[in-house]
Amino acid sequence: MALNTPQITPTKKITVRAIGEELPRGDYQRCPQCDMLFSLPEINSHQSAYCPRCQAKIRDGRDWSLTRLAAMAFTMLLLMPFAWGEPLLHIWLLGIRIDANVMQGIWQMTKQGDAITGSMVFFCVIGAPLILVTSIAYLWFGNRLGMNLRPVLLMLERLKEWVMLDIYLVGIGVASIKVQDYAHIQAGVGLFSFVALVILTTVTLSHLNVEELWERFYPQRPATRRDEKLRVCLGCHFTGYPDQRGRCPRCHIPLRLRRRHSLQKCWAALLASIVLLLPANLLPISIIYLNGGRQEDTILSGIMSLASSNIAVAGIVFIASILVPFTKVIVMFTLLLSIHFKCQQGLRTRILLLRMVTWIGRWSMLDLFVISLTMSLINRDQILAFTMGPAAFYFGAAVILTILAVEWLDSRLLWDAHESGNARFDD
């Protein structure tokens, strides 16, 4: 018995066209964080690309023209004298008006014999932002004059995390709450300039795509075929072959399989920071003279006294001054041990922890910024005066060393310790 099946006739004509040209192939790229070699397709503007294995951002879609970056830099340069030299806060102490600005706080630190601690604050609040705007201006002028731009481009990517104007702005709020127990506070004209400078700096850093600047100024022929001998440069993120001198053909720094002496430098910085954190938390970090009496505060006791007036601000200072430094030390110690013992479990967790400490590390400088600003506000000789204690130097040095330890660690070593050939990683 035959089955009668109805015929289905399409209502619209289906047209099949042959592909007349070869589909576009992607360029081969190595991930600078996990060293995976993959094919990167062509990316349009405002599109980002991520590593298929570790999800690290390979290409950032946010990109401004150099002219727009230069305009932002010149605007920031105009704001800087007002943000640093004009009063941020006014207080009335014992019937006398006192003005506080950024430069005055750094000068008070240096004047009291601790120039190293003052230079830490100076670099993060004044030096690094000033280098940022002058570097962008150098790129703008240098591109037109045919100057060598490689050193500036190499420095810009590392400079971003040292620009800490946003953290200093939080420190202004913390210092205001600490001082309000002794005097009446009012915002100064410099505060508005400083807030504007923070906003412009944040926007500029978020749109400063150094890798795209490398592509514009020093374009290189990408690798179009897969080759395990391809290496990625950690300076400019170019994937290719080393030249005859073993250097990256684009930025001219040595092109090595792994960062040289990464573990040794990381261990040295980490152990030194552990040693410095002990006096930083045991010795007094601030000293207040009130009517001839002397009151010393460690980091913890200062947080407890701050909690009596504002528990939320005390929580912020606790996280930045105690929780973050010790968390960074514990995480980095764990990561280094996992590399030495070739741990194969929990790779995803370790990668996330490394990215976390990379982002939060700079916030530990908050305590030094609060001390710097408070020193310029309260300084009335023996009637009422505020000065920093010996722990300030140890704390600042420990924070900087932990930042350097994270920067010096080559994250690809975590993958080397893991089993080879993993296309995915999980716990």
Rank of each mutant, 00 (worst) to 15 (best):
I116N: 08
S206T: 14
K111S: 05
R53H: 10
F326A: 04
A280T: 10
I14Y: 15
P151E: 02
I319N: 15
L354D: 15
P41W: 06
V121S: 03
T117Y: 01
I360W: 10
N281I: 06
Y289N: 02
W267T: 11
T202R: 15
N101Y: 02
K342V: 09
S273I: 06
W84V: 07
L368C: 10
G293D: 02
G173Y: 04
G315Y: 11
I339E: 10
A405Q: 05
S286W: 00
V125E: 03
D35H: 10
N291F: 15
G361Y: 01
L205S: 15
F333K: 12
P6M: 06
A314D: 00
L323E: 01
D243C: 05
L37Q: 09
K13I: 14
A183E: 01
E157W: 14
L306S: 00
L23V: 14
M120N: 03
L40D: 05
G246W: 04
C124H: 01
L88S: 03
P219C: 09
G171Y: 00
F326C: 09
T358R: 10
R226L: 07
V198I: 12
G361C: 09
G171I: 01
L257I: 05
L336M: 10
T11Y: 14
V275W: 05
R355N: 11
G26V: 12
V133C: 04
S411E: 11
E161K: 05
R362C: 06
L306N: 00
W140G: 08
L139I: 09
A320G: 12
I400T: 04
I322L: 06
D410H: 00
I351L: 11
E228V: 13
L130Y: 04
G113N: 08
C343Q: 12
P87F: 10
L153Q: 07
S321F: 00
P219E: 07
S309V: 02
V329E: 08
L205P: 05
S338A: 14
K12I: 07
L347F: 11
F395P: 00
L69V: 14
K160V: 09
A312Q: 14
L413T: 07
M356K: 10
I14C: 11
V16R: 11
L337V: 09
N143I: 14
L159V: 06
M164I: 03
R294E: 02
T327S: 12
V198N: 13
K57Q: 10
F192G: 06
R144S: 06
I172Y: 03
I8T: 08
F194M: 09
N209H: 06
L283P: 02
N148Y: 02
R259W: 03
V275F: 09
P81Q: 12
K57N: 09
G361L: 03
K178Y: 01
R17H: 07
G173T: 03
T202W: 15
C31K: 00
V16H: 14
R260W: 08
Q295N: 05
Q220P: 06
L130T: 09
I58K: 09
M164F: 03
L69I: 14
R256L: 06
I403N: 04
L337F: 14
S206V: 15
Q344N: 09
I136G: 06
F425Y: 15
H418T: 07
E42P: 10
V370K: 00
L401P: 05
E407L: 09
R424Q: 12
Q264T: 01
E228P: 08
A18Y: 11
A49V: 09
T204H: 04
C31I: 00
I403E: 01
F341G: 11
M388H: 11
W214T: 14
S305E: 05
A187H: 08
G146D: 05
I177H: 04
L153N: 04
R355E: 09
W363K: 04
T75M: 10
V331W: 14
F194I: 13
F217N: 13
A128N: 00
C31H: 00
M109G: 05
Q180S: 14
P87D: 06
L149R: 10
T334H: 11
I322Y: 04
I339W: 15
V313R: 00
L347E: 13
Y182Q: 09
I253C: 03
L300Q: 03
F341T: 11
I287E: 08
A392L: 03
H340S: 08
M1E: 00
R294D: 01
L40C: 09
A280P: 03
L377K: 00
A392G: 07
G146A: 04
S338K: 11
H46M: 11
V133S: 01
S119R: 01
A392I: 04
A307V: 14
S321C: 12
F318C: 09
I299H: 01
L159D: 03
I8P: 15
G315D: 02
L37I: 10
Q112A: 12
G302C: 03
A223H: 09
K12C: 14
L69Q: 10
L336P: 04
W162E: 01
L145E: 01
V399M: 10
N209C: 11
G315K: 04
L213K: 15
V399W: 01
T117V: 07
T358G: 11
I116W: 01
L263F: 09
A397H: 03
F217K: 13
P32I: 14
P151K: 01
L79I: 12
M80I: 07
D410P: 02
L149M: 05
A196H: 11
T15P: 12
E296A: 12
R17W: 10
L156T: 07
T387A: 05
V329N: 13
I285W: 00
L377W: 07
